[in-house]
Design a protein around this nucleic acid. Structure first.
Length: 867
DNA sequence: TGACTCACG
DNA sequence: ACGTACGTGAGTCAG
């Protein structure tokens, strides 16, 4: 926990002045207060090692207490001449220590200390108050301690709650009552006449507070009773005067009080003038010790420039806050340092093709600066992606987790520094020291992390995958994100209107049928309507009640016409909320939406798309498919060109399994589902009906997913027995596939993982589980991952090549989207033919498999027409 | 925040 | 006997 040291400057200055003999330098200047103060400061810094420090001073002005009691501090003598002449120099010394002072018009140091200690302790710091005044004991709490000068200038007593109670037998807050009763000569607080420390302690112990005492004076007797009763008002006033104000209206940024190295040169110069030779030698010793450890590694871009002249590998870790890069930490052979960002143009310094930038999630950073027009041509390496390759099933690749796992480095969690949700701090409120520490340790560990990860990657033979696919893909995805997909708002609006009209009618019908109004979006209320009101049969249960999903509703259609309307309502609401209401507000000034593509999320190696998800735009149903009419080219008269791999997963399966029949089918460019139907149903291809083909298609899907009779039976709504027959027939005809599936499951059981064509690896610990479900799940993953993952490998390779080819040829057309087996190019009208040729030749030839890869190209003025 | 539902390959 | 098809992301409700 951070420690905030706050010093009562006036109090310590007086203490030093009175405790030391009258020292003078050769110029005849009095120096004892400065000397003593400096001694105390050095000692405190060394012993307490605070993270933050501030020194409070009284401000010469009438304080609020004078307004209440004109005699307040009336007996105090004015400051002696010999001390006055030291004040300004002392403040120079403090300044050279790089310590900030706090003075506020109208308030005493006490009140500043009371307020600052409250703020600091409330923000979770430990506070240590140093003063010569016992009054401060009232500020002691669980995380506030007070150090009080005892004798001379070096001896101090430290008080926590327990120590206060042990010594004075009252709580810190009762200290105020104590002073209210006994008064204080030095502050001229009157108190109650004839009540001294002894009596005051007795009374506070017995009654708890002055207020309670005054309500119970009947329990007192003799002189004490008389005195208290006659001076009730005085007691209350005294208490108020003795109470340290803890809510002084100050606007304070605790970060500004982070401990910094003192300015050795300035301090030495001052001490020389003051002739504090012993302190000068202390100073030098200390500064050597602390310099390395406590160096405040905050630099600017001039420093970055110097570093870049010396090193060709640089680690970078940015702090992106509210979409802006607020700061960056760098690390290189010279150590690590932190730079606040005021001008993105400074990043142009990194534009150097000899430079290798190591980062963790570099795309975030590159996208961010790209929006400001800055493109870097340096080489890059990304430790997040490396970690993902080593194990793509992790739930996240936060830097703190990765460093802990691979380097056993403990890094504070960034959420603890910045805060989360409604506790998120404003940038200025973030503890700068923690942030700098966090970022510098992140950056300074990246290079070591990279080495470690690289050794594992080489061991697993994933170096090619990393260097030829995943790393180059960063720039491709960055470009896709920054470029965006252009939408036609009018198309969205007109579909929206159409949906509104339809749903208005449907909602009325449903309410009429129910006889009451309810929220159709609520599964709970909908199931009450369906299963209680209409008494329809509840087919499926969920954890929380009866299911109302599509499968259930479809079966309920024959029972009541309203069910059809409910289904339609659901579909329309989904379209409107997700694809229209969800998209319009995120369009930029050029009518584009910018998705974020995630490279480290899908365990199979696929990329995913978020905010918005452009990989699930409707296509299966005609009405929803019309949404795609809104996805247009950014160019006047430009086209959307779509290039999709035909049956890529089954082709991959043919390649991996080397199944003769499957290979033959693809070599002959057959209708694959038709062929499967003729095999499974043991008829000639001419005899295959559309229903048979539909079922065979489901069987093929099942094979890719890791087949089970249960899953197939559910999908086709046939008996498990029948499903099992299909599967048996399939495996009988496609023996190569059967062998492959058996062998991949066996491999996974023995090795604990499976791999793809490019050696991408996924661990499957579930495969040896004793739990049947877990184990079956593992087996299906073992079957599906090499297929889905290899397809992902292939299209990723194509993306890199298509992107580079468009770039090298200086074409205006852009790769803007990937949907697992499909690439979308926003095509300039002059480049339609070249783009189509380029796509087809690159994608079909990106890798040589045992079957050909076939790419279908579509084009149109929008995505709908590009099919 | 988790559960449900549904959009895609 | 067991009881899920593989991989994702987003909107909505309800507690």
């Amino acid at each position: 926990m951070s420690k905030f040291l706050i010093i009562d400057g006036n109090s310590l200055m007086y203490r030093a002045y009175f405790a030391l003999p009258d020292l003078m330098n050769s110029e005849g200047m009095h120096t004892n207060a400065i000397y003593g103060f400096s001694m105390m400061l050095l000692k405190l810094l060394e012993e307490e090692k605070p993270d933050y420090i501030a020194i409070a001073f009284d401000k010469k002005a009438s304080t609020f207490r004078h307004k209440e009691y004109s005699a307040y501090k009336g007996t105090r003598q004015s400051m002696p001449e010999e001390l006055i002449e030291q004040v300004d120099i002392l403040k120079d010394v403090i300044n050279a220590f790089n310590i900030k002072t706090i003075e506020i018009e109208g308030f005493e140091a006490d009140d500043i200390i009371g307020t600052v200690s409250k703020i600091a302790s409330e923000s979770g710091m430990d506070v240590l108050i140093v003063t010569g005044d016992r009054d401060a004991l009232q500020l002691v709490s669980a995380n506030v301690k007070v150090k009080i000068c005892k004798k001379g200038i070096t001896q101090m007593d430290e008080y926590d709650e327990k120590a206060v109670f042990e010594k004075y037998e009252v709580t810190p807050l009762q200290f105020i009552d104590l002073k209210g009763l006994m008064g204080d000569k030095s502050d001229n607080i009157p108190g109650v006449p004839n009540i001294g420390e002894k009596t005051a302690i007795k009374l506070v112990k017995e009654f708890g507070s002055i207020e309670n005492l005054l309500m119970n004076t009947d329990k007192l007797k003799g002189k004490i009773k008389e005195n208290v009763e006659n001076n009730a008002e005085l007691a209350v006033l005294s208490k108020r005067l003795a109470t340290i104000e803890r809510n002084v209206p100050i606007d304070i940024d605790l970060n500004e009080y982070a401990v910094k190295n003192y300015d050795v040169n300035k301090l030495t110069e001052l001490f020389e003038k003051l002739e504090f030779s012993s302190l000068i030698s202390d100073l030098k010793d200390d500064s050597r010790d602390t310099k390395d450890i406590k160096e405040w590694p905050v630099r600017d871009f001039t420093y970055v420039k110097n570093v870049l002249g010396k090193f060709d590998v640089l680690s970078l870790y940015p702090f992106i806050y509210d979409g802006k890069i607020k700061a960056v930490s760098f690390a290189c052979g010279d150590g690590s340092f932190f730079v606040e960002i005021d001008d993105y143009d400074n990043f142009k310094l990194l534009n150097n093709d000899k430079l290798t930038l190591i980062g963790h999630d570099l795309k975030d950073f590159l996208v961010n600066i790209s929006y400001c027009g800055i493109e870097l041509n340096c080489k890059i390496l990304d430790t997040a992606i490396m970690t993902y390759l080593l194990n793509p099933s992790e739930s996240n690749y936060d830097i703190s987790r990765v460093l802990k796992k691979y380097l056993k480095e403990d890094l504070q969690n960034i959420d603890d520094i910045v805060g989360k949700g409604r506790n998120k701090k404003s940038y200025d409120d973030i503890d700068k020291k923690l942030l700098v520490d966090y970022m510098c340790s992140a950056a300074s560990n990246l290079s070591k992390l990279k080495d470690k990860l690289m050794s594992f990657i080489k061991e697993m033979e994933m170096e090619d995958l990393l260097k030829n696919v995943e790393i180059p893909l960063i720039e491709v995805l960055k470009s896709m994100e920054v470029y965006g997909f252009t939408l036609d708002k009018d198309v969205l609006r007109s579909i929206s209107k159409e949906i509104d009209e339809k749903t208005d009618k449907i909602v009325k019908d449903i309410y009429d049928a129910a006889g009451y109004e309810f929220n159709i979006n609520s599964t709970k209320q909908l199931s009450e309507f369906l299963f209680d009101k209409l008494n329809l049969p509840a087919i499926k249960k969920t954890k929380t009640g009866y299911s109302t999903d599509m499968e259930v509703l479809a079966e309920l259609i024959p029972y009541n016409d309203i069910v059809g309307e409910i289904i339609e309502y659901r579909q329309l609401m989904k379209l409107k909320s997700t694809y229209i209401d969800g998209f319009i507000p995120i369009m930029d000034e050029n009518n584009r939406v910018h998705s974020t593509f995630k490279q480290t999320v899908a365990a199979t190696g696929r990329i995913s798309s978020t905010e918005p998800n452009l990989q699930n735009i409707p296509v299966r149903e005609e009405f929803g498919r019309r949404i795609r009419k809104a996805f247009v080219s950014s160019y006047e008269d430009g086209l959307i060109i779509s290039a999709d791999y035909s049956q890529i997963e089954l082709r991959v399966l043919a390649h991996l399994s080397e199944d003769e029949k499957l290979i033959e089918s693809f070599l002959n460019n057959e209708d694959i589902h038709l062929r499967t139907a003729s095999e499974v149903f043991k008829v000639s291809k001419e005899e295959v009906t559309s229903e048979m083909r539909r079922r065979a298609k489901a069987v093929n899907f099942g094979i890719v997913y890791g087949i089970s009779d249960y899953g197939l039976s559910k999908d086709l709504k046939i008996s498990r027995k029948e499903a099992k027959e299909y599967i048996d027939n399939y495996f009988d005809r496609y023996k190569g596939v059967k062998n492959y599936i058996d062998s991949i499951v066996k491999f996974a059981k023995e090795n604990g993982y499976v791999t793809t064509i490019l050696n991408r690896r996924r661990y499957i610990p579930e495969i040896n589980s004793k739990n049947f479900n877990q184990r079956s799940f593992g087996e299906r993953m073992a079957m599906n991952t090499p297929i889905q993952g290899s397809a992902a490998d292939i299209i990723k390779m194509s993306m890199v090549k298509v992107y580079n080819e468009l770039k090298e040829r200086g074409l205006k057309s852009r790769l803007i989207l990937q949907v697992h087996d499909e690439l979308i190019i926003d095509t300039h009208p002059d480049e339609v033919e070249i783009v189509k040729e380029l796509l087809k030749s690159i994608m079909e030839n990106i890798i040589k498999l045992k079957v050909p890869l076939v790419v279908d190209i579509g084009q149109g003025k929008n995505w709908y027409d590009a099919k």
